[in-house]
Design a protein around this nucleic acid. Structure first.
Length: 275
DNA sequence: CTTTAACCCTGGAGGC
DNA sequence: TGCCTCCAGGGTTAAA
């Protein structure tokens, strides 16, 4: 999947095309996602106008006057624009049709989801169970070193896992967690609560820089990502300093990059630069 | 409360 | 060629 830059790139592509447009068709080829796509999803939204395409964490939010459609791309999902007469590929599960635009959700592993949150239950961001526990947005002005330092106080969990958890800050996925910690010179195994205010400031800056850089290059791509206009994104791999670089020399000091496993996920770091 | 581990699913890569 | 194991960008859920 898509980490946050890919999701945001997708959101922008969609927002520019479908905001203000009325959905004409909604086709489900395979409802079996992380949670089943409800059979009445189409009748709920066909004929309704998209008011905006927003994002909360890695959830895309298609807002209608009477509710919000939540879309998550999981680990292998992409949402791309195709031509009306294009043939679908294997794993193209869901289609959104507008006047002159057609979008397809492609997700081989089906860890993604498409859910409905009625407006009667209040704003999805505040009231949907999957969104309420999410941490701060990484570009929220309130996300500062001091804020992070306070939130990490007393935590014994490794900083890498705290970042990945999504309840402190959202949008830092497995690749960017390793990259941001390298940039900040912090060892991924460090207990979160033991990181000084000064280093928290550095870490916030590193997270924002890492995400911004990826966003500017159109979202990173490893295997499955295609952005909303159908253009493949630039390869973040080319810019990665440590991710997937086990045994390769650190670009800063030449020491071999190390791979460890934390919470069943791979972490990469430079044992010399990150302490 | 915090933290860990299992699990959802397909497919690609590499060993034999 | 096949079969087997491991690995993958996420995140929810149950259990410790």
């Amino acid at each position: 999947m898509p980490e946050l830059p890919e999701v945001e790139t997708t959101r922008r592509g969609l927002d520019s095309v479908i905001t203000g447009q009325t959905l004409s068709q909604f086709v489900v080829h395979n409802p079996r996602m992380r949670w089943p796509v409800i059979p009445e999803m189409g009748s709920l939204i066909i004929g309704h106008k998209v008011q905006s395409c927003d994002r909360r964490g890695k959830y895309l939010l298609f807002k209608f006057s009477h509710g919000t459609q939540l879309v998550h791309l999981g680990m292998s999902g992409s949402l791309r624009r195709v031509n009306p007469n294009d043939t679908l590929l294997k794993h193209d599960h869901i289609e959104w049709w507008f006047n002159d635009a057609r979008f397809v959700l492609h997700d081989p592993r089906r860890f993604g989801c498409v859910l409905w949150h009625p407006a009667s239950k209040g704003p999805a961001e505040e009231n949907h169970p999957l969104l309420v526990k999410l941490g701060i947005e990484p570009f929220d002005p309130e996300f500062t070193g001091a804020w992070l330092h306070k939130r990490l106080a007393g935590k014994k969990q490794a900083i890498k896992q705290a970042l990945l958890g999504g309840t402190i800050v959202v949008g830092v996925g497995n690749i960017y967690a390793s990259e941001a910690l390298f940039k900040a010179g912090i060892r991924p195994t460090t207990a979160a609560g033991k990181i000084s205010l000064k280093r928290c400031k550095s870490l916030v800056a590193s997270i924002q820089q890492t995400l911004k850089q990826a966003l500017e290059s159109g979202g990173s791509t490893l295997r499955d990502y295609i952005n909303a206009t159908g253009e493949p994104g630039a390869y973040f791999e080319l810019h990665a300093q440590v991710y997937d670089k086990e045994g390769k020399p650190c670009k800063a000091c030449g020491t071999s990059i190390v791979r460890i496993v934390q919470g069943q996920r791979a972490t990469y770091y430079c044992p010399s630069c990150q302490r």
